[in-house]
Simulated assay, not measured.
Amino acid sequence: MAVTVMREVLADTLKDMMEKDERIVVMDADLASANGTFGLRDQFPGRAIDVGISEANMASMAAGMSAYGMKPYIVTFTAFASRRICDQLAISCAYAKQDVKIIATDAGVTAQTNGGTHMSLEDIGIVRSIPGTVVLDMVDGVQLRKALPVIHAHEGVVYVRMVRKDTPDVFDETHEFDLFKGTHMKEGKDLTIIASGIMVHEAMMAEKELKEAGINAEIIAIHCIKPIDQEMIIASARKTGKVMTLENHNIHGGLYSAVAEVLSEHCPVPMKAIGIKDHFGEVGKTRFLMEKYGMTKEDIVREAKVLCEK
């Protein structure tokens, strides 16, 4: 399976977009090297800016630039793109109806050895609670490359959550990105598995083992957590009668919460959440942390079997 370095896709795609639209400004908070955007400074002097370790100021600067007709992108680690700048996102950007794009890297357990302070497991919950925001959790590099131009065309605050380093490719170049629509990865009848971000790959691996166990699982990839694709979720839940969510995030406030909000009103069915169970992060490699927090394909298969017995 091919593997893509997400920060390279980010930088290359932003470069292409900046060549086409002179309004785009990319801002970093002393993390351009880590996030792969350092080279944009040589290519676009004055339009690729390091604001220093001052993320809140960076968000306010982006709001001001937007008010003057520019198209600002702020790029920093997920923890700093949500917890640290929540007030500026809410008031300066969303409340003021500015056109600001937030690129949040090192999502969830992929922050790895940066540890608990840099490992945001609550960022989706924070940003999706702010009115008017769009919240995305990118699946792989192919999707990110196709998504950025579409995101650019959307007016308003868009929060783009992504892995910074290596990510297995789930999609190929035939993938068609729709900002607000989920993707049917596989049709099924016994169980609906709804996954976001890195957990889509895990879902696809688990599906093979479930098939061997006689469980025909439907797999849905949801990249847009807000506004979520209600139509696809409801239709699948009505067909299978059971739903499992997979996310690289706290189950409180993230994908599980978003799906449960939809189904509790329109199609109540038994549900199971795979994700972080209300913990802070810690130092560790991604696979170690996924095993510790019960997020691997083995965990998915085990819990799916229990859910299907109900």
Rank of each mutant, 00 (worst) to 15 (best):
R23G: 14
R84S: 09
V262W: 08
V25I: 15
V262P: 08
G39F: 00
M70W: 11
M138H: 00
A11N: 05
I124Y: 06
N57D: 15
G182W: 02
L14W: 10
H266G: 00
G108I: 05
N248H: 00
E122Y: 04
A235N: 14
I233C: 06
A237V: 07
N114P: 00
V200R: 04
M58A: 07
D28F: 00
K101L: 12
K20L: 10
K242G: 09
A195S: 10
N114D: 11
Q143N: 02
V5E: 14
P45R: 13
G115Q: 07
I85M: 13
V160E: 10
F180C: 03
D30I: 06
S54T: 14
M138D: 00
L255M: 10
V262C: 13
L144H: 03
A111Y: 02
D106Q: 15
V158H: 06
Y159G: 02
G254C: 04
N35Q: 13
A2V: 14
R161Y: 03
E19W: 07
F180Q: 02
G214M: 07
K146L: 07
H223P: 13
A67H: 10
H118D: 12
S33K: 15
I198P: 04
G182K: 03
P131C: 03
T117M: 02
S33G: 11
I24K: 06
H154T: 10
P45D: 03
K189V: 14
I225V: 14
M232R: 12
K242E: 07
A217Q: 11
K242C: 05
L144R: 00
R47W: 04
L179N: 11
E218I: 11
K208W: 03
I130K: 00
I225L: 01
I130Q: 01
D140G: 12
A34N: 03
D106T: 12
I276F: 09
H201S: 15
D137I: 01
A79P: 06
R84F: 01
Y256G: 15
K71V: 14
A11R: 13
G156K: 06
L14E: 05
T37K: 05
G254Y: 04
L121Q: 08
L121G: 06
G275A: 08
L144M: 14
E187P: 02
G64T: 04
F80L: 09
M27R: 08
G69D: 08
D178I: 08
V259D: 01
A195Y: 06
A2F: 01
F80W: 02
G132S: 10
F38C: 13
G275D: 06
G115W: 05
Y68G: 00
G182C: 08
A11D: 06
L31N: 07
I274M: 12
K71Y: 11
K272I: 02
T113S: 15
V259G: 07
K181Y: 01
D169Q: 12
S54Y: 12
T78P: 01
Y159F: 12
P227M: 04
L136P: 04
I85N: 05
M138I: 15
S60I: 14
A147D: 07
K186L: 10
I220H: 05
F77T: 02
D30F: 00
D99S: 12
M17K: 04
A111N: 13
H118N: 13
T133A: 00
